[in-house]
C-alpha cells in the first residue's frame, strides 16, 4: 500500500505535461501601477518569443521575470519593452524591480509557460499525503 502510494506520488511529480503547440511571437501590454500589474498573469507556450511592453501609470516601476533574469524599467508616459524566448516551462513570478512605495516588494504577477500543471500536481500530492496519513498511524500502533 505504501509502495503504491509512493509510486503514485512519484508519477504525479514526474509525468510530463503534453507537448506544446508551435512557437509563436507573443506581445503583452502590461500596465504597472501601485501595486499591481495589469494583467497580472501572462500565458505562453515553451519556445514562444515573448515581448512585454511595460506601461507605468503613476511612478517608475520595473518588471523582473523570475527564472529568466530579465527586466525592464518604465517611467510613466515612457513605456519600456523586454523580449525573451520562453525556453523554460513552469510558473514564474513577475516582480516589480524598482522601489515604488511601501508595498513594492509585494507588487507581483506571474508568467505561466506551458500548461500549468503545478497547482494540479501540488493538489494531488496533498491529497495523497492526506490519504497516506492514517496508514502511518496504523503502522505506529502495531
Amino acid at each position: 500500500m505504501t509502495l503504491a502510494l509512493a509510486s503514485v506520488a512519484l508519477a504525479v511529480i514526474l509525468i510530463p505535461a503534453p507537448a506544446a503547440a508551435a512557437p509563436l511571437e507573443r506581445f503583452f501590454r502590461v500596465g504597472a501601477g501601485q501595486y499591481a500589474f495589469t494583467p497580472a498573469s501572462l500565458r505562453a507556450n515553451p519556445g514562444d518569443t515573448i515581448t512585454i511592453e511595460l506601461h507605468s501609470t503613476d511612478v517608475t516601476h520595473g518588471l523582473y521575470v523570475d527564472g529568466y533574469d530579465v527586466s525592464a524599467e518604465a517611467q510613466p508616459g515612457q513605456p519600456a519593452a523586454l523580449t525573451f524566448i520562453a525556453s523554460r516551462a513552469g510558473v514564474f513570478r513577475l516582480r516589480c524591480s524598482v522601489t515604488c512605495g511601501t508595498l513594492h516588494p509585494f507588487m507581483l504577477g506571474r508568467l505561466v509557460v506551458g500548461p500549468n500543471w503545478t497547482l494540479a500536481r501540488a493538489a494531488a500530492l496533498a491529497g495523497l499525503a492526506v490519504l497516506a496519513a492514517p496508514l502511518t498511524l496504523r503502522k505506529a500502533a502495531e
Binding site: G33, A36, T38, A40, F106, G109
Partner: peptide, 12 residues
C-alpha cells in the same frame, strides 16, 4: 491574498 495576490485594490 493581499501581499502575494495580484489584486492591487486589496493592497490599497
Amino acid at each position: 491574498a493581499i501581499l502575494l495576490g495580484p489584486w492591487g485594490g486589496l493592497k490599497a
